[in-house]
């Protein structure tokens, strides 16, 4: 049996909000360590890897491994009915045909209970080896989101160029072009505002702006985003959860 209680529904609300526009159907794999998801978008360009470790829950138990096949839009409809500050408990039997979601407000005078039918989802599972990256950028997630939104107004592609101590986001469109350069920066008082660039080799990669604009829907989850890049390899965009992560592997564009 699975029983996982979040102190606040807001965490799962943000996670589902971040994923629902990229993937329609997901298997949520529940083990004693927590809940994990691997899902690939329909165009097979973006891979999402979610891990909500047991430590992200107030209480968590899962006696046997359970797979919950969930339709994200339906899950989102139910999740939106709960308040962000409600406690949220996920409950499923060992061979479940439904996931129960129980929202309790903190004064415990209101309990809302929902049941979501499960689906049999046949999905590929890709093996992600330990990847080697040539550049790692840690930066404020809100700043990364603004850059992705701004650059998408010009072109459907966004070029990321990293040299020693700066990252250049470059967009070349039909009616014009634009770029934003950010440099390494340490804010000792507000560390979440800092930009850190770790570089082994210079990077020049191009990505679909549409996918980057899906990834930035994770911005409310974490104040910083970590971007890991390697030439002609998928980029990794990572948002840390209190205990776990939401990762996006995005295939680049390049010439054959």
């Amino acid at each position: 049996m699975l029983e996982g209680k979040f102190d606040e529904a807001s965490l799962l609300k943000k996670v589902i909000d971040a994923m629902k526009d990229s993937v329609k159907l997901c298997n949520f794999n529940c083990t004693e360590n927590g809940i994990s998801v691997q899902a690939i978008d329909d165009s097979r360009v973006l891979l999402i890897s979610l891990l909500i470790e047991a430590g992200s829950f107030e209480d968590y138990r899962c006696d046997r491994n359970i797979v919950l096949g969930l339709e994200m839009e339906s899950l989102n409809k139910i999740i939106k009915n709960g308040n962000a500050s409600d406690m949220l408990t996920l409950v499923a039997e060992d061979s479940p045909d439904a996931l129960n979601l129980i929202f309790e407000d903190k004064r415990r005078d209101r309990i809302a209970e929902y049941s979501l039918k499960l689906m049999d989802i046949d999905q590929d599972f890709l093996k992600i080896e330990d990847m080697k990256f040539d550049a790692v950028v840690n930066m404020p997630s809100a700043e990364f989101a603004k850059i992705c939104r701004d650059m998408k107004t010009l072109s459907e592609s966004l070029q990321i160029i990293i040299t020693k101590d700066s990252v250049k986001f470059n967009s070349e469109g039909d009616f014009g072009s634009g770029s934003v350069v950010i440099k390494s920066f340490t804010d000792l008082e507000k560390t979440e505002e800092s930009v850190r660039i770790t570089l082994e080799k210079p990077i020049n990669l191009t990505f679909g702006a549409k996918y980057l604009n899906d990834i930035i829907k994770s911005t409310p989850l974490a104040s910083q985003v970590t971007i890991k890049l390697c030439d002609k390899q998928p980029a990794l965009f990572e948002y840390q959860l209190p205990s776990g992560y939401l990762r996006f592997y995005l295939a680049p564009k390049f010439e054959d």
């Binding site: 097979r44 890709l126 093996k127 992600i128 080896e129 592609s157 998928p234 564009k253 390049f254």
Partner: peptide
């Protein structure tokens, strides 16, 4: 011209 690659090109199925 640049071509969008598929994520499946980079990771093997298990």
């Amino acid at each position: 011209t640049l071509k969008q690659k598929s994520i499946s090109n980079f990771f093997a199925k298990t």
